[in-house]
Protein backbone atom coordinates (compact mmCIF):
# COMPACT_ATOMS: atom_id res chain seq x y z
CA UNK A 1 0.00 0.00 0.00
CA UNK A 2 1.43 3.31 -1.02
CA UNK A 3 0.60 6.63 -2.59
CA UNK A 4 -2.50 8.71 -2.51
CA UNK A 5 -6.21 8.29 -3.17
CA UNK A 6 -8.85 10.91 -3.86
CA UNK A 7 -12.63 10.59 -3.70
CA UNK A 8 -14.91 13.37 -4.96
CA UNK A 9 -18.20 13.36 -3.04
CA UNK A 10 -21.43 15.27 -3.25
CA UNK A 11 -22.91 17.65 -4.08
CA UNK A 12 -24.53 17.42 -0.64
CA UNK A 13 -28.13 18.41 -1.35
CA UNK A 14 -30.95 18.84 1.16
CA UNK A 15 -32.14 15.42 0.01
CA UNK A 16 -28.71 13.96 0.84
CA UNK A 17 -29.01 15.39 4.37
CA UNK A 18 -32.56 14.05 4.82
CA UNK A 19 -31.51 10.58 3.66
CA UNK A 20 -28.37 10.60 5.80
CA UNK A 21 -30.36 11.73 8.86
CA UNK A 22 -32.61 8.71 8.44
CA UNK A 23 -29.78 6.32 7.53
CA UNK A 24 -27.52 7.41 10.37
CA UNK A 25 -30.19 7.98 13.02
CA UNK A 26 -28.98 11.55 13.61
CA UNK A 27 -32.18 13.58 13.28
CA UNK A 28 -30.83 16.78 14.85
CA UNK A 29 -32.90 19.47 13.02
CA UNK A 30 -29.85 21.74 12.73
CA UNK A 31 -29.01 19.59 9.65
CA UNK A 32 -32.53 19.62 8.20
CA UNK A 33 -34.51 22.72 9.08
CA UNK A 34 -33.25 26.15 7.93
CA UNK A 35 -35.42 27.87 10.58
CA UNK A 36 -33.61 25.94 13.34
CA UNK A 37 -30.23 26.72 11.75
CA UNK A 38 -31.09 30.44 11.61
CA UNK A 39 -32.22 30.41 15.24
CA UNK A 40 -28.69 29.22 16.08
CA UNK A 41 -27.19 32.16 14.17
CA UNK A 42 -26.32 30.25 10.98
CA UNK A 43 -27.29 31.14 7.41
CA UNK A 44 -28.54 27.68 6.57
CA UNK A 45 -28.31 24.01 7.52
CA UNK A 46 -24.96 22.23 7.41
CA UNK A 47 -24.01 18.62 6.82
CA UNK A 48 -23.53 16.02 9.53
CA UNK A 49 -19.82 15.60 10.28
CA UNK A 50 -20.38 11.86 10.13
CA UNK A 51 -21.46 12.16 6.48
CA UNK A 52 -17.98 13.41 5.57
CA UNK A 53 -16.45 10.70 7.75
CA UNK A 54 -18.58 8.15 5.87
CA UNK A 55 -17.13 9.49 2.59
CA UNK A 56 -13.65 8.93 4.02
CA UNK A 57 -14.78 5.44 4.99
CA UNK A 58 -15.71 4.83 1.34
CA UNK A 59 -12.26 6.04 0.29
CA UNK A 60 -10.64 3.56 2.71
CA UNK A 61 -12.80 0.52 1.89
CA UNK A 62 -12.34 1.21 -1.82
CA UNK A 63 -8.60 1.08 -1.21
CA UNK A 64 -8.16 -1.88 1.20
CA UNK A 65 -10.44 -4.67 2.43
CA UNK A 66 -12.30 -3.35 5.46
CA UNK A 67 -11.01 -6.01 7.85
CA UNK A 68 -7.52 -4.50 7.50
CA UNK A 69 -8.60 -1.17 8.99
CA UNK A 70 -7.39 -1.20 12.60
CA UNK A 71 -8.42 2.31 13.54
CA UNK A 72 -9.96 5.40 11.96
CA UNK A 73 -10.13 8.81 13.62
CA UNK A 74 -11.02 12.34 12.56
CA UNK A 75 -11.23 15.82 13.94
CA UNK A 76 -14.04 18.01 12.58
CA UNK A 77 -12.35 21.33 11.80
CA UNK A 78 -15.07 23.32 10.01
CA UNK A 79 -18.72 22.88 9.13
CA UNK A 80 -19.75 21.66 5.67
CA UNK A 81 -22.48 23.85 4.17
CA UNK A 82 -25.38 22.37 2.22
CA UNK A 83 -24.55 22.11 -1.56
CA UNK A 84 -20.84 21.48 -0.80
CA UNK A 85 -18.75 19.11 -2.89
CA UNK A 86 -16.15 17.68 -0.50
CA UNK A 87 -12.91 16.24 -1.81
CA UNK A 88 -11.56 13.39 0.33
CA UNK A 89 -7.86 12.58 0.23
CA UNK A 90 -5.89 9.74 1.77
CA UNK A 91 -2.12 9.62 1.73
CA UNK A 92 0.16 6.91 3.09
CA UNK A 93 2.60 8.73 5.33
CA UNK A 94 4.30 5.85 7.13
CA UNK A 95 4.70 2.08 6.85
CA UNK A 96 6.30 0.13 9.69
CA UNK A 97 8.61 -2.87 9.26
CA UNK A 98 5.75 -5.00 10.66
CA UNK A 99 3.55 -3.88 7.75
CA UNK A 100 1.28 -1.35 9.41
CA UNK A 101 0.49 1.71 7.30
CA UNK A 102 -0.61 5.11 8.57
CA UNK A 103 -2.87 7.02 6.17
CA UNK A 104 -3.35 10.74 6.62
CA UNK A 105 -6.90 11.80 5.80
CA UNK A 106 -8.25 15.18 4.74
CA UNK A 107 -11.61 16.48 3.53
CA UNK A 108 -11.64 19.89 1.84
CA UNK A 109 -14.24 22.07 0.15
CA UNK A 110 -13.89 23.68 -3.27
CA UNK A 111 -12.77 26.99 -1.66
CA UNK A 112 -9.93 25.19 0.12
CA UNK A 113 -11.55 25.06 3.57
CA UNK A 114 -10.37 21.92 5.35
CA UNK A 115 -13.40 20.41 7.10
CA UNK A 116 -11.90 17.19 8.46
CA UNK A 117 -8.43 15.94 9.25
CA UNK A 118 -7.66 12.49 10.49
CA UNK A 119 -5.79 9.26 10.28
CA UNK A 120 -6.38 5.59 9.63
CA UNK A 121 -4.12 2.71 10.61
CA UNK A 122 -4.13 -0.17 8.12
CA UNK A 123 -2.73 -3.64 8.52
CA UNK A 124 -1.02 -4.73 5.31
CA UNK A 125 -1.20 -8.31 4.05
CA UNK A 126 1.70 -10.61 4.94
CA UNK A 127 2.85 -10.59 1.32
CA UNK A 128 2.56 -7.00 0.14
CA UNK A 129 1.15 -6.46 -3.33
CA UNK A 130 3.42 -4.85 -5.92
CA UNK A 131 1.56 -1.55 -6.13
Amino acid sequence: MSGRRVLEAGPITRTTLALFARASGDHNPIHLDPAVARSAGLDDVFAHGMLSMAYLGRLLTGWVPQERIRSFRVRFAAITPVHARPTCTGEVVHVTAEGVATVRLTVALADGTVTLTGEAVIELPATPPHD
Binding site: N28, I30, V36, S39, A40, H48, G49, M50, M53, Q66, E67, I69, R70, S71, F72, R73, V74, R75, F76, I79
Partner: peptide, 16 residues
Amino acid sequence: LRHVLHGEQAFTYHSV
Protein backbone atom coordinates in the same frame (compact mmCIF):
# COMPACT_ATOMS: atom_id res chain seq x y z
CA LEU B 1 -28.67 20.87 20.87
CA ARG B 2 -28.32 23.95 18.62
CA HIS B 3 -25.04 24.67 20.40
CA VAL B 4 -23.58 21.20 19.99
CA LEU B 5 -20.80 20.36 17.55
CA HIS B 6 -19.18 17.02 16.88
CA GLY B 7 -15.51 17.70 17.64
CA GLU B 8 -13.81 14.38 17.06
CA GLN B 9 -14.71 10.80 16.30
CA ALA B 10 -12.53 7.71 16.57
CA PHE B 11 -13.05 4.01 15.95
CA THR B 12 -10.79 1.13 16.94
CA TYR B 13 -11.83 -2.06 15.18
CA HIS B 14 -11.62 -5.64 16.45
CA SER B 15 -13.73 -7.44 13.84
CA VAL B 16 -16.10 -6.56 11.00
